[in-house]
Every structure is written in C-alpha cells, then in structure tokens.
C-alpha cells in the first residue's frame, strides 16, 4: 500500500485508475445486434440496474475491454470482457404509452446480455 504524498497528488489526479484493460477478449456482440438483458438478481455487487433486466435493446457501440465489477468487487477476478453502449426504447423499459421518440443508452458488459432468440 502506497502512502499518497503531496507531490504525488497532481499525477494521481491527472492519471486516475482506469478500469479499461489492455488485453484482448473475444466480444460476444457486434454493433447492430438485437439483445435481451439477462434477468439476474445477484445478492452481491452488480452494475446492471433493475430497470433493464429482461429488456430488449440494440448494441450501438463497443467500448472495448473492461474489468467486470460483479466478480471484481468480491475478489473473484477481473474477468475481462467487452462493454457496449446499448439503446433501449422508453416503451420497452416502461411500457404503457411511453413515447418512442426518445431513448435510453446504458453500458452493458458481455455477461449481462444474450442475443434475442
């Protein structure tokens, strides 16, 4: 464990601690894929909000490879995998008469999704 001293602060602040990993992982999805978010309810840490579980969206962009928080938070490894920007419509997320002129974009790890069957 390092002790941060005053002369280290500028560099610490300007560098940060990226969770992006400089390694390759085979992406499970491509831009344009129609996906469905897994319906999981893990008792531990996850970055998958309840409001997208079981919902259908479309992959917009591949952000590259990142640490998987669901395992990393529990000392179960970084499990490197791709993160994607995925677009959802309001009617898919909220039902009813929500207008589909608008959209919600959220970032999803490989382990959060499946292709629509």
């Amino acid at each position: 464990m390092a002790v941060v001293t005053a002369d280290m602060v500028a560099e610490l602040s300007a560098t940060g601690a990226s969770c992006r990993l400089d390694e390759t992982a085979t992406p499970r999805f491509s831009v344009g894929d129609h996906i469905v978010v897994r319906n999981i309810n893990p008792p531990g840490h996850t970055r998958m909000p309840r409001y997208v579980r079981g919902k259908r969206g479309v992959v917009q962009r591949d952000h590259g490879v990142f640490i998987f928080p669901d395992t990393n938070a529990h000392a179960q490894g970084e499990k490197p995998q791709h993160v994607y920007s995925v677009r959802f419509t309001p009617s898919e997320l909220w039902g009813g008469d929500a207008s589909d002129r608008d959209s919600i974009y959220i970032d999803m790890w490989d382990d959060y999704m499946d292709l629509q069957g």
């Binding site: 952000h63 608008d102 959209s103 919600i104």
Partner: peptide
C-alpha cells in the same frame, strides 16, 4: 423514466420532434 419531466423542472423544453437521449453512466465511461 421521465426525462422530459426532469428537463421541465430545469426550465428546459425540448421540441417534440427532437429525440431526448438519456445516458446512464453505469459503467466506467
């Protein structure tokens, strides 16, 4: 869930034919 309602609270009105695109920063972007 209600981005246009939220925007209205900030005094912002977006035209009906403009898409309001909400980004949830749940990952590391």
């Amino acid at each position: 869930s209600d981005p246009r309602g939220v925007l209205a609270e900030f005094g912002v009105e977006i035209a009906d034919d403009t898409e309001v695109r909400v980004w949830d920063s749940n990952a590391e972007l």
